[in-house]
């Protein structure tokens, strides 16, 4: 319902519209004093207008399905928005398939596995892949890489970036053979430049950086993925007070979730694996305990199956549990060699 249809005086209506309040929803979260200040009217008058407006919006409800709180969305709108958001490919087709196309923006995804499983490799791959231009089905965005462990090697990033560009050029050649205009203008150095790299040496620094990220991302709106490699390392060092650790960690998790939601970016947290004593035997589980496992929307576990690396979706609100093989090659994360063979045989 428009402000114009409210049963108020013409001068009030004029003041409202000239101040930019054209719809009822724009008035829904205002306090009378704010409105009074904006329109330069008395508080009583403002309160009167808001009362009429809220009455009006209540009348509106049956037909329109108004939001209760300003900024809330309907599930229908959210579904559409979800479909609009591109996903970040992992460069491994099988893995993308079980992830529903790749790592989801607006969500926090946790990836865990034993040392040497390829967590860091996957992290670097995502930091490179988020930069694939929109023409090539990517996001054409930038990445933030938060390194707590020191495993980030520039030479490896360069290698993966070169392979990524090579693949894109190949794809370019296949799709538009005669087009010169579609020539790829990307250099591995550009890819390196578009990864914002933070090396974090203690948990206090990690918390401070998490708090600072919001400001940083507001200034760099084209960041579409935040990778934390690993979220765990500093939180396994110095904590005698486990309750404090849990509080700090859930604080970080909340901030990252808010970040993901507000800026529409993907947050990828890499986690270590630990053993847990369950019913008389030691079992492998992701580190940081049970309360942490609630903090991530999606959880992917990487594991060995014989001689092959597999990824398993352990938790996700929208994806079904599934596992897929992948391999770590000189070019980065790719389809597992054995599935390639199978495809070739068919």
């Amino acid at each position: 319902m428009e402000v114009g249809r409210l049963p108020i005086s013409a001068s009030q209506r004029g003041k409202l519209i000239s101040a930019g309040y054209t719809t009822l929803s724009s008035l829904s979260s205002l306090s009378p004093s704010d409105l009074a200040l904006d329109l330069r009217i008395s508080d009583n008058e403002a309160a009167e207008i808001l009362k009429v407006a809220s009455l009006g919006s209540r009348l509106d409800e049956p037909e329109g399905g108004r939001a209760i709180v300003n900024g809330a969305q309907t599930a229908w709108d959210m579904l559409h928005e979800d479909e609009m958001f591109p996903r970040i490919t992992t460069s491994c087709l099988d893995l993308d398939n079980i992830l529903g196309g790749g790592i989801n923006c607006k969500e926090v995804t946790e990836i865990g596995g034993v040392p040497g499983m390829g967590k860091t490799q996957l992290g670097i791959q995502l930091a490179v892949n988020v930069q694939i231009p929109v023409d090539y089905g990517g996001l054409g965005a930038k990445a933030i890489y938060i390194d707590t462990e020191g495993s980030f090697m520039v030479e490896r990033v360069l290698q993966i970036a070169e392979a990524c560009i090579e693949d894109m050029t190949e794809c370019n050649g296949l799709l538009r053979k005669d087009f010169q205009a579609g020539q790829l203008k990307m250099h591995p150095n550009n890819i390196l430049e578009n990864i914002f790299y933070f090396r974090v040496c203690s948990y206090t620094e990690q918390i401070a950086l998490t708090n600072y990220l919001d400001k940083f991302i507001s200034e760099h709106k084209d960041v579409k993925v935040v990778i934390v490699d690993s979220v765990t390392f500093h939180f396994r060092q110095d904590f005698d007070d486990m309750a404090l650790r849990t509080r700090l960690l859930s604080g970080i998790a909340l901030k990252l979730m808010k970040l993901a939601k507000e800026h529409g970016l993907a947050v990828v947290l890499l986690n270590q694996v630990t053993t847990k004593y369950i019913e008389g035997s030691f079992q492998l589980t992701l580190a940081l305990g049970d309360s942490w496992s609630h903090s991530c929307t999606n959880r992917v576990i990487l594991y060995w199956n014989g001689n092959e690396r597999y990824a398993y979706i352990d938790k996700s609100p929208s994806l079904r549990s599934a596992s897929a093989p992948y391999s770590v090659t000189s070019k980065g994360i790719r389809n597992s060699a054995s599935t390639c063979k199978r495809i070739r045989m068919m």
Binding site: V154, L192, F196, Y197, F216
Partner: peptide, 14 residues
């Protein structure tokens, strides 16, 4: 806190 520019680091770790 400012991010490191990866191009300013040696491209191959020493």
């Amino acid at each position: 806190m400012t991010p490191e520019n990866l191009l300013l680091r040696p491209l191959i770790t020493q």
